[in-house]
């Protein structure tokens, strides 16, 4: 399935058809290593897109390009039709390892983006409290991160990224560092949050069930050097239940596409290895 022919199917309320993030033939080298061969895609306004691929395929690199932390070697990356030149407050980022600031309380972590913007303290606190409530952290405002569990830390990081109102939310394997139970609970628990947030969301993940449960669209990347090999629209209303047979069918579809790619990659790896020895 090529990117050009992939139809965008908005399913969440309010998800528009206006392109928000556009990648045109993006290529990325690290030194002499080609990490990203050619990535082209369009992510629409208020769409939740999950990007999945074999490990080491450069999924996170693509997210960092959108965030502006890294620069593309070739091609263009546009947000609102403007070239990405660096990080900015129009994009909020949540990392796998939370990256909270241990010297700030939960509330001060959450108001950080607004403090930097120069929003008056009282207004900043009010806005941060709203997202702390929606992420289920009411009552923990004055705690320091060191006293929180992993799941709660990630809730703080999500609240922190949403508090300063970015148009795009970038999630880099947000549940990757959590244990299975916490992860499943959080995915279920936060489903309404994404609807409430009503932003363009790009999530990097290696879990098919996570992608299928949360996203409107799943982009499948090939192994390195990466290309987009499939673009699957998940035409189901939110919130979704993993036991729902329709969700299962999507899960099977994405898994099949992904494992075919992983098989190919493994075979190639074995051949190169055999050729060398």
């Amino acid at each position: 399935m090529s990117v050009e022919t992939a139809k965008i199917l908005p399913l969440r309320d309010g998800a528009g058809t206006k392109p928000k993030i556009v990648a045109k033939n993006v290529q990325k080298y690290f030194g002499n290593v080609l990490a990203m061969e050619d990535i082209s895609c369009t992510i629409n306004e208020r769409e939740f897109v999950a990007i999945i691929g074999p490990s080491g395929c450069g999924k996170s690199t693509f997210l960092y390009l959108i965030a502006g932390f890294e620069k593309a070697s070739q091609g263009e990356l546009l947000i609102n039709n403007e070239l990405v030149v660096g990080p900015g407050p129009d994009r909020g980022v949540v990392f796998q390892e939370f990256v909270l600031f241990p010297w700030l309380t939960v509330l001060r972590n959450a108001t950080l983006g607004l403090d930097i913007k120069g929003v008056p303290r009282q207004e900043a606190e009010e806005r941060a409290r709203k997202w702390l409530r929606l992420t289920g952290l009411s009552g923990f405002e004055n705690a320091y991160p060191s006293s929180l569990s992993g799941g709660m830390k990630q809730r703080v990081a999500i609240a922190r990224a949403l508090s300063y109102d970015p148009e795009v939310l970038l999630l880099d394997e947000p549940f990757g560092a959590l244990d299975v139970q916490t992860k499943n609970y959080m995915i279920q628990d936060l489903q309404n949050l994404w609807v409430e947030a009503n932003r363009t969301i790009v999530m990097i993940t290696h879990s098919v069930s996570e992608a299928v449960q949360l996203a409107d669209r799943v982009l499948i990347l090939s192994s390195r050097p990466s290309r987009i090999i499939a673009d699957v629209a998940i035409k189901l209303p939110h919130p979704r239940d993993l036991r729902d047979p329709q969700v299962r069918r999507y899960e099977d579809e994405v898994t099949a596409l992904l494992s075919a790619e992983v098989d190919k990659a493994m075979k190639r790896e074995r051949q190169t290895f055999a050729g060398r020895s």
């Binding site: 990080p87 909020g92 990392f95 600031f101 913007k117």
Partner: peptide
């Protein structure tokens, strides 16, 4: 100090 810490505040427009 990890680069991710710097990225977090840079993405806030620091």
């Amino acid at each position: 100090i990890g680069r991710h810490s710097l990225w977090v505040v840079r993405s806030m427009g620091a």
